[in-house]
Amino acid sequence: MLELTRLGVRMGLRGLGFRILLLATLALLGMAFLAGNFSGRQQLTVTLDVAFSGMRVVLLLMVLVWMQDLLARDIERKSVYFMLAYPIARWQFLLSRFLSVAALGGMSLLFIGAVFWVLLYFFGSNYAQMRPPALSWSYWLVLLGMWLDLLVVAAFALLLATLSTTPFLPFLLGLAFALAARGMGPTIDYLRGERSDPLHEQLFSPLLEHAYVWLPDLSRLDWRVLSLYDLPPEPLAMGLAALNALAYIAALTALAIVIFQRRNFT
């Protein structure tokens, strides 16, 4: 299975993905540095903030593209027959694909994160901020949270890939899922707040307040305030969020394996 995972990673790197990643990284860094110039009093913080937002979007797209490339396309082109002809169980194949995407996502995150860290560290603004962003361990903790966030989306795309006959379904629904899961937390906060429309609250609150049973709140994995404002971590909340994400990933992957075992490829 490890061998298969390694093969998957190599396939991902050889594909279009890696070149897109390089280009996207460059564009992202430029954008973040330009955005930082909008800020009057906290250039470095805004640069970092926009970069984190950009990383989340770019890597989300990358992970979905890889999932589409490595699994959904195999199923569509029927090359999955050949894969399954090898002496491995179906679940091993599926899991190794998930691990490949996870490894690819983690590697690209580390790559972008490291490039950006170096740039910020050496060429960041020299304006003396009241509280400059923390670029030590908290920066890497933010990246870890982002990786977990990506894994959740990857697990969802994996499940859809086992169900669907077209490779675009996991990609498009994966995007919609990520949008919903990332925006859910702030939306609930808004509905509970004093500025919400009572009609909206009546309509959406019953749905959203119980969404925790099927939709993970990915905004809880966004730990960027630790780095942006140099705040101390909240181990309980962060640990719970990580557990929540891991449990969701386990549930979805298990379901995907069950479906894939029973799937009839015709």
Binding site: F52, A178, R182, G183, T187, S196
Partner: peptide, 26 residues
């Protein structure tokens, strides 16, 4: 735009939505 719409066009990212609003105000 209403807050849920702002969240949607910021890809569900509240920090990006905040930054976009501040840039517009600036």
């Amino acid at each position: 735009m209403p807050i849920p719409v702002q969240l949607t066009y910021s890809a569900g990212d509240p920090f990006l939505a905040a930054n976009l609003n501040v840039f517009r105000s600036l």
